[in-house]
Amino acid sequence: MTAARVRAAFADAGVTGALHAVDLDHPDRELSVGADEPVVLASVFKVPLLVALHHSAHDLTRRITLDADRSTGPTGVGGMLDPVTMSLRDLAYLAVTVSDNAAADALADLIGLDAVNDTLRELGLTRTLVVHRARDFMRTMAEDAAPDELPAALADPVVLSRLRALDPDHTNRGTARDLTTLLRHVWRHDDCAPIRRAMALQVWPHRLASGFPFDDVRVAGKTGTLPTVRNEVGVVEYPDGGRYAVAVFTRSASTAFTLPAADAVIGTAARLALEHLR
């Protein structure tokens, strides 16, 4: 019943989607809408990246310098112009709060994607794999769009249908259920406290948080965005102590970048799911 309402909400917003929601304290209470289908993670991969970092032996107060050859992006160090020297833990903070590609890739280069995948295996997330850094998304999109050129080609659905970055078989992938399992780990483990803090400080209000316009309900999340891909995974905490991990992955029909309804339905779907669990 609730699953049908979630699917109808997705359809009404012009997207298809997968969702998994689970009560952190009673994991037998859950809701699945295509929760085991492979999905494209996009920037959601920064969560497993940070989990691997926080379980590594690295001194997170060590400072490293990101020079001009760092990865680029719209936010954080990725959008800045000059060399930046920062501690590993502040890079981790930027990678989650503003999805900073330069910060995330610097950390990925430091620990290696193998370490990220080793961590995923240890946590039993067999359906989740990280094979690309943020800069690899941009590189493969340019390669696969050729001879068409970015960014114009990203509005052409025929071009999008051949991008590896949008194909779960060829890029960072997971399932909604795997990602809520990861969040349960983050919310249980003391080493992961800085990840919880950063997710709670994430700046975007338009997706998961938009479904909970109540100032006493706290939403901590991490988004992921690529052409037609809009994702967010996070934890919603109610004042009565109820805590729920939610993972929502969507694909929009329209190739437009600005689709407020497609962003908002992530919050709507999550709220429908939590109303069911509560």
């Binding site: 996009a42 920037s43 680029t72 992006g73 719209p74 936010t75 503003v98 999805s99 590609n101 943020a134 998304f137 941009m138 999109m141 970015l150 960014p151 114009a152 990203l154 509005a155 052409d156 025929v158 975007w204 988004t223 965005t225 690529l226 052409p227 190739t255 437009a256 970048f257 600005t258």
Partner: peptide, 18 residues
Amino acid sequence: HAEGTLPRYPRPAAEYLS
């Protein structure tokens, strides 16, 4: 055939990945 008719209002690619 649609070649050359798309797109109208492309967004800078760098804005993705947030």
